[in-house]
Design a protein around this nucleic acid. Structure first.
Length: 648
DNA sequence: GGGGGAAGGACCA
DNA sequence: TTCCTGGTCCTTCCCCC
């Protein structure tokens, strides 16, 4: 990219995501487009970052080449044998009885906009803004304009380009219309985005005695009739191939690959690897530059090298691609694994401003989580620096959270550990969701109750031993009474821990206390028994594994009026309901502690800052932080989330 | 040595 | 002057058991 080896045409080696051919871009003056993009990008921070990334990939290629060179004549027969065995196994799994159809709407957002505003017809148009465009119609693509390209570059390529802002409500509405059509062919169709879906049309074809080709034509016609939009369709024995096929006759076309092994192998033999979903720019570069692999057929031919250089997982994928294999089953309904929100803004290092932006993102995330009834326990902060370096910092909590306040509390800690820093993007992601979605409002109560009610002593003991529940503010720790007693009794202990030290611990308890001068004193590991010293409140608590209530408030345990009425909520429960009563009391205690925590957090924020700056903190920090490949200035997160040395 | 969390990266739409 | 957003999966590193 722009180096001497490129002579007087440096742009020829500048390969951004949007210099790759896409449907409708045939006949584009590629060199002209590349030159313009290069001229407009060079010198920018984005460009510099791209250069860094490319250097990193080049290094990766060199390393793999070196590994390759080390392979001896003795190694190769072994790896060839491994590859042959894998190929035989994969071949045995080949299924040709299913007919899969992949449908892809043509320039979807642009088509919807044109449908609603016919004056746009025939004009080069892009949906998006000057900073980034989502999609471009086919007229614009003739100029080299395409999705994921910054608007200002698109404008340079096509000065008459019309920009239309995105309107996702519209796209969702039209997407739903297309899905109504899809459902008639396969009620369990898989939607991968607003404009793409996979349909298993095996049954539909068999029941009606229709071929895949006939069904594809019928479906395209129905979509057009009911939406006024065109789509392109691919039909093949599996999803991987169907997706490749739908791209062949774009726009408004279809391609059918027969359910026949020979036809599949012929089709795949000359197919460029980049056409396969899952093989992107980096993987393509590595396979090409290290092993000279350009087509899917060559993946099979170089099987031995793939086995020698890549992981089992990657090798299996590459070899199955070489055989033209793909998924033929309809997966179970996939549950969401994470939810996130991020914002890009003008680069700034202003701390109050960054915290304000973080609060906005936390609010959006919290709202989204509430809409979907989700609680999560792993919070990840994503940062993009002014120089486009991306960092992520995560914290796993011992409780599930959802509120803006809680998200912001932890997110702020993660951010502050990274500052000072000039940022252009911040994002928050929540993952590790609680299994039950719409449970009680207090996620912890459910967790606690499940331990008591289940009576699964083994499970609770294991949990207790391995994961002392030490939440940042309010902790509900489940402890088994001394195993020596062998009476299988479970007692519940509540402990309120230091906001600073405990929230990131996954195994064991460690407490950090802060003395008046801000010097860090690392505390003890706690497993069943521990002393908790909280200097700020001059409070010493002891907790010995028996049922202990260690809340700082003066509130007392709920009592049973007249022997059966709860003094707090008035619920009636006879004395014989021992476990239920215990659980009920625990619930109120958990509530009390939760009330306290907001106050507690506020009190501790000031203290926490001083701790973060303590010189000893860095020394004590566990060196888990991975060395940044970029070698930039970076404060390890552990410098903030200090863990003590394990007590012996 | 294996399990699992954290961090980073690839990829997709 | 200006280069997105939101999601999944995989790999690597490193700590702890």
């Amino acid at each position: 990219m722009g180096t001497t080896s490129d002579g007087d045409r440096p742009w020829q080696s500048y390969h951004t995501a949007y210099t790759n051919a896409k449907a409708g871009m045939e006949g584009v003056d590629k060199e002209k487009v590349q030159r313009i993009i290069y001229e407009m990008s060079k010198g920018s921070k984005y460009f510099e970052n791209e250069k860094r990334k490319e250097a990193y990939i080049r290094q990766k290629v060199e390393n793999l080449r070196a590994q390759c060179a080390k392979l001896t004549d003795k190694d190769m027969p072994h790896f060839q044998e491994v590859a042959n065995k894998k190929i035989l196994e994969l071949e045995a799994s080949r299924e040709l009885s299913k007919i899969w159809l992949h449908t892809d709407m043509d320039a979807f957002y642009a088509a919807v906009e044109t449908l609603e505003n016919p004056s746009l017809k025939g004009k080069p148009m892009a949906v998006g803004s000057m900073s980034m465009i989502c999609t471009a119609n086919y007229e614009a693509r003739k100029f080299g304009v395409r999705a994921a390209m910054p608007g200002f570059i698109a404008h340079k390529l096509c000065p008459d380009l019309v920009f239309v802002p995105t309107n996702f409500e519209k796209y969702t509405y039209y997407s739903e219309l297309t899905r109504k059509v899809f459902r008639r062919y396969d009620s369990d169709f898989i939607a991968t985005s607003l404009d793409e879906a996979y349909l298993n049309i095996t049954e539909y074809c068999n029941e009606r005695g229709l071929s895949g080709e006939e069904v594809a034509a019928e479906l395209r016609n129905n979509v057009y009739e009911e939406t006024g939009l065109t789509c392109s369709v691919g039909v093949a024995p599996n999803r991987l191939l169907a997706k490749v096929c739908s791209d062949i006759n774009k726009p408004n076309g279809q391609y059918i690959l027969p359910n026949d092994r020979k036809a599949v192998m012929t089709f795949i033999s000359s197919l460029p690897i980049r056409k396969i979903g899952g093989i992107g720019k980096v993987t393509e570069t590595i396979l090409k530059d290290v092993l000279g692999i350009n087509t899917c057929e060559e993946l099979l031919q170089k099987g031995a090298f793939l086995c020698a250089l890549f992981s089992h997982c990657s090798t299996d994928f590459f070899l199955s691609v070489g055989l033209g294999l793909g998924r033929t089953d309809t997966p179970e309904h996939k549950l969401r694994k994470s939810i996130s929100s991020e914002r890009t803004f003008s680069s700034t290092g202003d701390e109050p401003l960054l915290l304000q932006k973080l609060a906005d993102i936390a609010e959006t995330l919290s709202n989204d989580m509430q809409k979907e009834c989700i609680w999560g326990r792993t919070l990840t902060l994503k940062l993009k620096t002014a120089s486009f370096e991306v960092r992520t910092r995560a914290v796993s909590l011992q409780k599930f959270i959802q509120s803006k306040e809680e998200i912001l509390t932890y997110a702020s800690k993660l951010l502050k550990a990274e500052l000072p820093l000039s940022l252009r993007l911040m994002g928050l992601r929540m993952s590790q969701f609680r299994d039950d979605k719409c449970g009680p409002l207090d996620p912890r109560q459910k967790t606690l109750a499940s331990f008591v009610v289940s009576g699964d002593v083994t499970a609770s003991a294991t949990f207790s031993d391995k994961h002392q529940i030490c939440d940042a503010q309010t902790d509900l720790s489940v402890h088994r009474e001394s195993s020596a007693s062998n009476d299988d009794k479970i007692s519940l202990s509540y402990e309120k821990n230091d906001v600073l030290a405990s929230d990131q611990l996954s195994c064991g308890l460690r407490y950090a206390s802060t003395s008046a001068d801000g010097i860090e004193n690392m505390g003890n590991e706690c497993s069943g028994k521990c002393d908790y010293v909280e200097t700020e409140n001059e409070m010493i608590r002891n907790f010995s594994g028996h049922k202990t209530i260690a809340a700082s408030s003066q509130k007392t345990e709920p009592s049973w009026v007249d022997g059966y009425i709860c003094s707090i909520c008035g619920i009636e429960m006879p004395p014989s309901f021992i476990e239920e009563r215990q659980e009920h009391s625990d619930y109120h205690l958990a509530e009390m502690l939760q009330e306290e925590e907001s106050v507690y957090v506020t009190e501790h924020l000031t203290q926490e800052r001083s701790v973060r700056k303590a010189p000893q903190a860095k020394e004590n920090a566990r060196k888990k932080q991975k060395t940044s490949p970029k070698g930039g200035k970076h404060i390890p997160i552990d410098a903030f989330f200090i863990k003590g040395k394990k007590s012996l």
